[in-house]
Design a protein around this nucleic acid. Structure first.
Lengths: 199, 199
DNA sequence: GAAGTCATGTAAAATGTTACATGATTCA
DNA sequence: TGAATCATGTAACATTTTACATGACTTC
């Protein structure tokens, strides 16, 4: 599953330009699949070449002509086949968690900042979802799938935010603070007693 | 932040070979940062060339010689600097959620299968975390950061699993089932009334 | 004797990100 | 008049995945 597939998916909701598709992605997928112009435009070109979408240029006064893409029958079938054949992966890539894993090597001040900023980011994500949840992608209101995905986002982000807040609260208490305060001491050590492998 | 940084991070816990590092990644980072041999070995070669790690080959009876890597002072400093300079991103890439977004285009049977398999996958992840939580990376037990990350994983995966289960339960009831039953009807339609853009 | 683990690496392919280039229209 | 939005695209770069290549040792 790649950006081409997502473009096909977006076009199942109606004809659109690359620009429209980017906006649609931002509204609907941004929390679990990112895509920018740099991948969308090449994807649309390839899909056109493969006959999965058709393209109608629309003359405009000036600047680049808007191109309206629509699914062909072949494209519609291809998308269904891809959906049926996709093994659904689900992976997180979090530099935030990497940073937290090495909390003992971070100055306490930065550690607090990292946590606070992540809480703020989750808050923002939650607001985005709530905004998107009320107004659907088109006039029909959100599809069942869109509702499912929004519900998932709300649930998971809510839990994540609560966890971060609870940890943040006792940062000046015991848990992580203890590690952070040891930063200087750990630094001295140089070589640790035990390696990954006792070898 | 890339695989090179993660390798430096792994080596802060002690000297190791590329093979060891891969295992360490699998135990500790696999839920929020994936890396395979194809990225680890080149990373270690570059780090060596840059003088951030040093490498001691260890003769063995046969097969490729094991190479023990260790952080240099420069590498240790570099890692701290990278940590301090990293803006902590946190992104999810989920083909599972894409699939669910297009639930109305999936045969109900597959939809149920997808949900069940994802629940099973989350269960497995939770077991991995619990196993890893009891036994730390080295003899000292888990660091504060490792505990934080495990706690995060438990919290979030627990919430996600509970959500999926609740949705799965009423699959034969209302919510998603309604959409799935409409699959045939939607298929007929071809063009939808409303596009992404009302244009 | 088969399966799994230990152990390293390369080359090609896939995929995505970033920066650049261009320029009109619309709103405050 | 300045900022934002509309609108498309390319080229270079970065990064990762996948498949391949090799081969002994250990455990069932």
């Amino acid at each position: 599953m790649d950006v081409k597939d997502l473009c096909l998916g977006a076009l199942t909701f109606g004809n659109a330009s690359g620009y429209d598709i980017k906006k649609f992605f931002q509204q609907s997928f941004s929390h679990f699949y990112a895509a920018g112009y740099g991948s969308i435009y090449p994807a649309l070109a390839e899909l056109t070449a493969a006959g999965l979408v058709s393209c109608r240029p629309q003359a405009r006064g000036a600047g680049p002509n808007r191109k309206l893409y629509s699914l062909t029958l072949k494209g519609r079938r291809s998308f269904r086949a891809r959906l049926a054949g996709t093994q659904p992966r689900h992976q997180v890539k979090s530099e935030f968690l990497v940073l937290m894993y090495f909390a003992h090597l971070l100055p306490p001040k930065q550690l607090r900042g990292v946590l606070d900023r992540q809480v703020a980011a989750f808050d923002q994500d939650l607001r985005d979802i709530q905004r998107h949840e009320t107004a659907g992608a088109n006039g029909d209101g959100p599809t069942a799938g869109a509702r499912f995905v929004c519900g998932y986002g709300r649930t998971v982000l809510g839990a994540a935010r609560a966890y971060l807040r609870s940890q943040r609260r006792n940062l000046d208490g015991t848990a992580l603070a203890a590690a952070s305060k040891n930063t200087a001491a750990n630094h001295r050590g140089g070589q640790r007693r035990h390696g990954i492998t006792p070898s």
